[in-house]
């Protein structure tokens, strides 16, 4: 079992936007299974009004996709850890194709992200996969491209 300590040694994402809790299976360079618990204590629910309807508690699509994408980055970085952007590369999402949102996700569930590498080219990885909740698929991703760029090229800070 791979917990947050090991995840932090692999990727540079940190609180409040580190959205993977553990990795349960990995075949480096090929596949990975990771998990993230969604709870109402997350910052995205902090400012909802008292009378917010049930649908307002659907986990934001951006965070669902970001959590899945971080699982992809963990797989891409498994053999080449990149925990500090300032010392290494910066991970940038380059493109996404064919993401189907099959059902909304609510607090109280554990997301099971499945990722597989389609191809790796130079400093980019193209991955596909899905997310399940209690065995039901809630997200399918046909193609996600993540690129590693030199942080020195992009310029540090602003």
């Amino acid at each position: 079992m791979t917990g947050v300590d090991r995840i932090k040694a692999l990727i540079p994402h940190r609180y409040p936007i580190l959205l993977v809790d553990r990795v349960s299976e990995v075949d480096p360079g090929r596949t990975l299974v990771a998990h993230k618990a969604v709870t109402v204590a997350e910052p995205c629910y902090a400012h909802l009004p008292e009378d917010a309807p049930a649908q307002a508690y659907a986990y934001p699509v951006s965070l669902l996709l970001e959590s899945w994408a971080q699982s992809a980055v963990i797989l891409a970085c498994w053999l080449k850890p990149n925990p500090d952007v300032l010392a290494g590369k910066v991970e940038l999402a380059a493109g996404l194709r064919g993401a189907e949102l099959l059902a909304p996700v609510y607090p109280g569930v554990v997301l099971e992200h499945r990722v597989q590498v389609l191809r790796e080219v130079d400093e980019a990885a193209v991955v596909a996969g899905s997310t399940l909740v209690d065995g039901e698929t809630v997200l399918r991703v046909a193609q996600f491209t993540v690129a590693l760029r030199d942080s020195s090229v992009l310029g540090v800070g602003v």
């Binding site: 540079p12 951006s62 500090d84 999402a93």
Partner: peptide, 18 residues
């Protein structure tokens, strides 16, 4: 920006979808 990324703040791209 504290977490994305420490010392190198850029907006998570998927926020733009949101």
């Amino acid at each position: 920006f504290e977490g994305h990324y420490p010392g190198f703040p850029i907006l998570p791209g998927l926020y733009l979808v949101q």
